[in-house]
Design a protein around this nucleic acid. Structure first.
Lengths: 115, 115
DNA sequence: CCCATAGATCGACAAATGTCAATGAATGGG
DNA sequence: CCCATTCATTGACATTTGTCGATCTATGGG
């Protein structure tokens, strides 16, 4: 895997206009709400936090399973939601799946809340 | 259902430690997730946007009812969720209820996503 | 007083969500 | 080969959520 060039076609940087930038379109609202909904769950916030705090910014499911005290399928379920929302990446190496935060995704989300 | 789920407001400036600032406590995650969950809905995002874009930064239910094409009870329901989350204030003047964005609430939320 | 208006609350309902146990799929070691 | 490990998927379940119609509670005007 050639050290990730992955220019992230547009995942993080372009999302929606900021909330306070005038009335929102229904489409923008739906797209943006999907991302906020993804982080609108305690378990998923802790997952992001755990991944970010882990060595090299990535962690496998086995690293996340124990501190959350949830079943492995449940953790995988939440990780999938975060990946689908464009907030996490998944990389498989050997038997393990490594999750990492999509670069710039959270700041981009934060920008939509700024004035 | 009498769940209310009040987020227990303090200044709106202090909420939780940022996501990327090390592993999150379960309590912080729950409190922060409640706020993100509040804005994790298209209708509520549009409500915030409409209120922010309205004259003097405040709007009554009658202003919000029509552009959303939802019933009045539904709009009131969403407004209550935003108030309980500490994102909107409600002020009653005469027959009307005026909603406004809590100053600094959104930037404070944004900060928890920044690096 | 009576009534119209604005908005909150209630009761009900379908749909979505979070969780788990069980199972399936891929990988690597003996 | 077989088997253990890691993780994803499936099916099931209770809970929560978004929505509406109906009703209740002010408030203000005649």
């Amino acid at each position: 895997m050639a050290t990730s060039l992955t220019v992230l076609e547009s995942p993080a940087t372009t999302c929606c206009s900021p909330i306070t930038g005038g009335a929102m379109s229904s489409e923008d609202a739906t797209a943006l709400a999907a991302k906020f909904k993804a982080i609108g769950d305690p378990t998923r916030l802790r997952l992001l936090s755990l991944v970010a705090a882990h060595a090299d910014g990535e962690a496998c499911v086995c690293d996340l399973n124990e501190p959350l005290d949830l079943s492995q399928p449940t953790v995988s379920h939440h990780l999938k939601i975060l990946v689908d929302a464009g907030l996490l990446t998944r990389t498989k190496r050997g038997t393990w799946s490594y999750y990492a935060i999509v670069p710039g995704a959270l700041p981009a989300l934060a920008d939509t809340l700024q004035v």
